[in-house]
């Protein structure tokens, strides 16, 4: 099966119903994307598919053939970090760090469609679970990145912003 991952055509020897998560982790050794629950409840496995935040643990690989798949490994580099990665460091977000790949990918998709999210937008979009409780710093980092002058270097996050619909903002700010 041919997949487009982080801008590269990649061959994966996978059955159609195999979740994308395990193709990434166990076949392609892209271990930045994490396994947390297996039922799309925690968000640790969040990747971008055509710019949308998708939970790869329940996404069959057949559903993403021909689509632009982006993982945390392509969000930014040490030389050219994504605005969110810079904000993550400035706000000292990570603790154990396990959920942070998913948090960053969810946040990147949010900023791509809502460049200046409100707290309610963040509550609605960021349903990832973090047991270390980094939420208030994640929130601060998203606001910081949204207000940073640096354009986001991630092509995936901006490319298909037009194709997504804004989530209803129902959460309330703490």
């Amino acid at each position: 099966m041919q997949l487009q991952i982080n801008g590269q055509r990649t061959h994966a020897d996978a059955a159609p119903d195999m979740p994308l998560l395990w193709v990434l982790r166990d076949q392609l050794n892209l271990t930045g994307t994490k396994f947390g629950c297996g039922i799309a409840a925690c968000g640790a496995c969040t990747v971008h598919v055509d710019g949308q935040a998708v939970r790869s643990c329940v996404t069959p690989v057949s559903a993403v053939q021909g689509k632009d798949i982006r993982t945390i490994e392509s969000l930014g580099s040490a030389e050219h970090p994504h605005a969110l990665q810079q904000a993550w460091i400035a706000e000292q977000v990570p603790q154990c760090g396990y959920c942070q790949s998913g948090m960053l990918m969810a946040a990147a998709a949010l900023l791509a469609r809502t460049p200046h999210p409100t707290d309610a937008d963040i509550d609605a979009a960021m349903s990832n679970i973090c047991r270390c409780g980094t939420y208030q710093r994640v929130r601060a980092a998203i606001h910081r990145a949204a207000n940073s002058p640096m354009p986001s270097p991630s092509s995936s996050a901006t490319k298909s912003a037009s194709s997504s619909t804004a989530s209803p903002a129902s959460g309330s700010a703490a």
Binding site: T33, E73, L75, A78, P81, Q85, I89, Q92, P94, G97
Partner: peptide, 21 residues
Amino acid sequence: APRMDLWAKSSGSATFGLDVR
């Protein structure tokens, strides 16, 4: 002082038990 593990944990490159290959 900033934690020493910030970049690794903001880039997916930190190695947890599950990431051993």
